[in-house]
């Protein structure tokens, strides 16, 4: 992997960090506002489940996670372990795939609820 790809990964991690910060902010604010009225998690999901807008929002959230976390894991492994770079790239890619699959499964599940 040459320095151009490495630099692009680094940039992707910074940009995804910005996206994550915004997503976490909206996510937390949404929950805090929603529970003010005494709603439980199940009740909230019952009302908004199936919303295309929210599904798209959480899709972006998952995507940002899948970009951000594996690149960070790659850097940590490179600094803290003696694992070969090729293997580190493999582990990080697998981690990205797991986040993407699990996250998207949750988003699709949410979309399929069809309540809102």
């Amino acid at each position: 992997m040459n320095e151009v790809v490495q630099t692009r990964l680094w940039l992707a991690q910074r940009i995804s960090a910005v996206v994550l910060a915004v997503c976490v902010g909206i996510h937390l604010a949404g929950i805090i506002i929603a529970v003010q009225g005494g709603l439980s998690a199940a009740e909230i999901i019952g009302r908004v489940g199936g919303s295309g807008v929210l599904a798209a929002f959480y899709g972006v959230f998952v995507l940002a996670c899948a970009v951000h976390a594996p690149i960070g894991l790659r850097a940590v492994l490179a600094e803290m372990t003696d694992i070969k770079p090729v293997s580190i790239n493999g582990i990080a890619s697998a981690f990205a795939a797991v986040i993407l699959l699990m996250g998207m499964q949750a988003v699709l599940g949410f979309l399929g609820l069809g309540g809102g």
């Binding site: 040459n2 320095e3 151009v4 490495q6 630099t7 680094w10 850097a75 490179a78």
Partner: peptide, 10 residues
């Protein structure tokens, strides 16, 4: 290019 990449400034 010489200072970019995993072993450089990043």
């Amino acid at each position: 290019s010489m200072v970019a990449g995993d072993d450089g400034c990043l």
